[in-house]
Each structure stands twice: as structure tokens, then as C-alpha cells.
Design a protein around this nucleic acid. Sequence first.
DNA 1: GCAGCTTGCACAATCGATTGTTCATAATTA
DNA 2: TAATTATGAACAATCGATTGTGCAAGCTGC
Lengths: 335, 335
Amino acid sequence: MQPTKKSTIYDIANLAGTSGSTVSAVLNGTWKKRRISVKLADRISKIADELGYTLNMQASALRREKSGIIGMIVPMYDNRYFSSIAQDFEQMARQRGLFPIVTCTRRDPKLEMEAARAMLSYQVESLVCTGATDPDCISDLCRASGVKTFNLDLPGQKAPSVISNNFEGAFALTRSIFKQCREAELELFPLLFVGGRAGDHNTRERLRGFIAAHEEVAIQAKHEYILTCGYGAEKSADTLQLFSETNKNIPSGMFVNSTITLEGIMRWSNKDGKHRLKGVKLGCFDWDPFAELLSEHILMVRQDVPEMLTRLFELIDRKSSKIETIEIMPIISPR
Amino acid sequence: MQPTKKSTIYDIANLAGTSGSTVSAVLNGTWKKRRISVKLADRISKIADELGYTLNMQASALRREKSGIIGMIVPMYDNRYFSSIAQDFEQMARQRGLFPIVTCTRRDPKLEMEAARAMLSYQVESLVCTGATDPDCISDLCRASGVKTFNLDLPGQKAPSVISNNFEGAFALTRSIFKQCREAELELFPLLFVGGRAGDHNTRERLRGFIAAHEEVAIQAKHEYILTCGYGAEKSADTLQLFSETNKNIPSGMFVNSTITLEGIMRWSNKDGKHRLKGVKLGCFDWDPFAELLSEHILMVRQDVPEMLTRLFELIDRKSSKIETIEIMPIISPR
DNA sequence: GCAGCTTGCACAATCGATTGTTCATAATTA
DNA sequence: TAATTATGAACAATCGATTGTGCAAGCTGC
């Protein structure tokens, strides 16, 4: 009922008739080194328990100049890729005794910087930038404060990066789409590419793989078939609508650059009870359990989040600042 | 290159030939009250900019006894409901000048307590427990430290709570399933209820609504048709498999208690290229954009996250500690 | 020409925990 | 017994920012 104030080591010290430094030593485990008697240590621990004492990390961190906080910036939570990144990141950070702070910045460069600044204020020891619009800018900001940064999902020039092997993934995915077409005894033709930003690294690499897979089967990828309309369900729906208005028919194979793009495409396809994409072979560079169930014609690329995070934490653990880009092969499913 | 140390107000003070207190006042905006000259203030601001100074919130918080941190615990990130809760929560917290810390505890009671304790250590000003297994236990812990808690999605006895109106939502959903059955000219029959934990509040309330909707059409809900097999895709798939082995046929209408349950059900349904649930009317108390596209026979209940958070922040803003449970009507879609 | 007020800023205590140092008292050794 | 060492714990400085208080210098008015 009463607004119980937080108790401090001095409250405990008073109750135990001892000093703050002794309490501190007992509670943080350095008491043996300080030759504090077992009896006193026990008494202090008991009182701390009774009071429900919790360490004030602000004070502790201030004194030790070590916050124990590790930060992560992600663009979104609401898709499987980023949400499992956040989820696994937290777990792995905790395993290392770190306190994870994840925040989502909605692909907004300004918010990204603001969030990074806030993290610095709260004294993160290192910061992982996932899918940041401009990771280098954040790296600069952090380096000025002596904080190491790491890039995930998008590579940067100013910090170690772990990303998916977008080229190989896209190449394999495109190849699988062609294979599905062949199995359906369709003549091969240039595929449609939908979604992503033409400027961003991942989309560029995926396009490279997309085109290379065309070349492999001696097909010329069509320029007008590459619709990098950004991220967003509306945008991809509108783009497809427009495409279908200006092109008599839609190619029966499609490379979709993210689940959010796929969402727009499926919504457009099913609008007004129609099935505009019936029989169209879809390959999506991203994974979602329900999307996978939508039809047998959907291939998905699942980025290998556990492996990416494992490699990321290797870098973090060894406090690497060697600027390199580690590429992890994603998984094509089914098969 | 060099491991630039973070600069402090004293670094700035030295460069400006002034004192720490003056720098502090300038940088935190109280300098007018302290009658510091505009000239000096400008000089200090400029130096701070040049150094890339960032406030040490640990120190600031320690002195002011106010961290500016608001915490949230969620069970998962990887479904639309919780991920949009996390996403919107962060935005609304930031709008209020608070620093949001969200952490996911995987429905693990031990981890929940541990996370709450960590948040207390980092001096959260208030803590929102979303879908916690035992919110009251966390409330107790926090009250001992004078930290207010709020419950979201699951009600508690020891803190104000905001939840969906599970009874009404389930009632309406069940009714809609019956309606779909009627439109398909099926004779009405007791529906299957799959997923959730029999012990948890939401499942209990939804069951009440489920049963009430049966009574409305004068049908007796069947006890053996209520399969509260917990949360988890595997579990629901196994449960349905078992059910189908012991019951000659599966009812053509089904109340699914969460997307994760739905995932298992659909996976089971489509296993080995079959369509075990063809024609079955499904109602899911949860929402996912791809799940919604799976078939025309899927009804989904979308919990009204924006409204829930609005009400939640009303409580937080006015630092309410009145123990009440606010119920928000979820949205049935389609229609 | 001096009391009294304003202006502009520095000083010092403080938040809670940590840690190098000091210092009694007890135990051991010479 | 005196000198030395070991034991157990208190003291005080410190981390960086905040804030109540103090105090010169400049200005006003009589």
C-alpha cells in the first residue's frame, strides 16, 4: 500500500549495523576478497532478501563505467524475420549476462539516429544495427562515444557486418522458380521482380542473383519487369495493379522481395473474390509460416537467423572492429 | 580510430573555462533560471556539439531519481498481436518522452520474474506486463520497490489491467462461425474449440463466450470437443491428429484460440498434400494477414491494439493504481 | 560614496554503488 | 614479552549530472 521506496545498501548497512562498502561487497560477491566474515555476510544477505533489495544498476554502472547493456535497432517487429532476430538476440544477450534493449525504428532514418542517441545516453556497451537505412551514420555517432557497432542484415562500411548471402539466395530461389515452371511444363520466360528499394544493398544483390539465374537458362531478364516499389503492402498491390493494366498478361513466375510485399500481392490477387495469380509460381525472399501455407506454388527463402546471430555474437564477444562482411547462406523451403 | 572516450560536462567545462554546474544547466535547459548569459550558453552548446557530447543518463537518473524508462514484458514477438503491441508501445512511450524497454519472456514464468527484476535494477518508472503467466507476482515484486505495474492482455488482481473483451469477442466469433455454417446450409452442431490453456483467464472467458453462443442457438457444447492443448503449433497439430483418430469425423466448424494454434492446425490439415479441413469453417481468436488469406472460410478476431494501448497509457499517465480491469472490444474480420 | 539590488556564475553536496586505503584488534612468531 | 602478521571491517574518493547556496562584480538610487 505505502509507496515503498527502493532500499539501498545503506538501508541494509544500518539494519545490519555495518557499513555501505561491506554490504556492497557482500552483495556483489567480492566479499571473500575483502575478508568479510561468513557470519556477517549471511546476516547482510538475509536482510537484503527481507527488504527485497535490488541493485541500482544506474549507480553501479556509473561507478564501474560499465552498463552491461547491449542495444539493438530493428526496423519492425511485425514480420517473422525481424521478430525472431529480436527474440533470439535477447536470449543470446541474456546468456552472456548482458541486458538487451531492442527498439524498433520503422525504417525511419531520423528515428534510427534518435534511437541510437538514446541508447548512447543509456550507456550501451555495444549497438547492433539491423536493417538500418544508414548504418554508417550510426557507426560514426557511436564511435565518437567509443561504442562499438555491428551491422546485421545490411552491410556498412564502418563496422563489422553479418548479412544473408543475398546473391546466392536469390540465385537459388530464382532457379527454383524456373524449375517449378519447367515442372508445370511452362515455356521459360523472364520473371517479375517485385518489392524492395533499388538503392538498398540487399535488393541490389538479390537482383544480381535474379539476373544471373536468368542468364543461366539463357533468358534475358526484362527491365520493365523489375518493380522495386519499396516495402509496404499497399505499394506492391498498387504496383501490380498498374502493371496488370499496362501489360496484357502477368508472367507466370514472380520473385517477391519480402513478406510485406507478398502480403500486398496476395491481397491484390484475391481482391473481389478473384484469383488473379492462380497458377503463378511465386518465390519470396523471406519466410512466414502462414504465407508458406497459402499455396503449393510458393517457395520461400528463410534467412538463417540463429546462424547469423551466432556469428554476430562471435564478433561482439571478441569485440571485433575489423570491418568485414560475413555472409550467411539462407535456407530455401521447401527443399 | 582511437577509442574516443565519452565526453562529460567537465570536459566541456574545461574547454569553455567554466564550471560543470553551468554546463549542466545549459545543456538541460535550466540555464535561464540560473541567469547564465546567452553568450556563455551559446559557447557551451557549440563545444558540446563539437565534442559530440551525449548526456549520461545513468548519472542524470541517479541524481534526479528518475530514469525516464518505461518497461514492457511480452511473451513473444513473433505474432502480429504481440509485435504490434511492442511496436505501438514504443512509439507511444517515445511520444511521452519516455525510453521504452521491451523484453520478451517466452511464456516462461521464471524468465518473467528475472526480466522484471532486471528492469527494476535499471530503474524503470513503471512496468507493463503483457500476457504474463503470473502478473500478480510481478506486481508484488515491483510494489516492494515502489514501481507501478500495469497488466495488458491478461488481468491481474494487484494492478490496473487492460484486456480484450474475450467473452464478447468469442461470443461474436462463435456466432459468426455458426452463421457461416448456416449459409453453407449445414445443420448446426457443436463446434470444436482448440488451443489455449484451460487455466488462463482469456481462455476461460473465451470458452464462456463459445458456450454462450452455443446456448443461443440451443446447441449443447460438447465437453470432448474442447481441446485446450496450450500454445504451440506442434501441440495443436498432435491434438487434432489424436482427435481425428478417436472421432470418425471432425466437426465442420472450429474455434481456434490463437494464430499459433491455427498454424499447427493448418499444417496438420495440409500434411502430405491433403486438405483435411476442406470446407471446415474456422474462426480464430487472433489475427494474421496471411492467415486471413488462407481461405474464405477463416474468420479472425483482431484485438484492438491501438485502443488498448491508448487506454493503457491513460492509466500510466495519470499514475493510476486503482485496481480495475478495462475491457476493449476486439474487431471481427471480415465484417 | 555607500547601502542594496541584480546579474552571472562557481562551489559543494548529493544520488547509490564500488574500490583503494587505513586501522583497530586478534593471532602468531621470534 | 615485544614485534610481526593476519583478520575483519570502516573510511573516503569516485563515477557524471543536478541543484541549493554563496559570492563577487556591476548597477541603481539617495
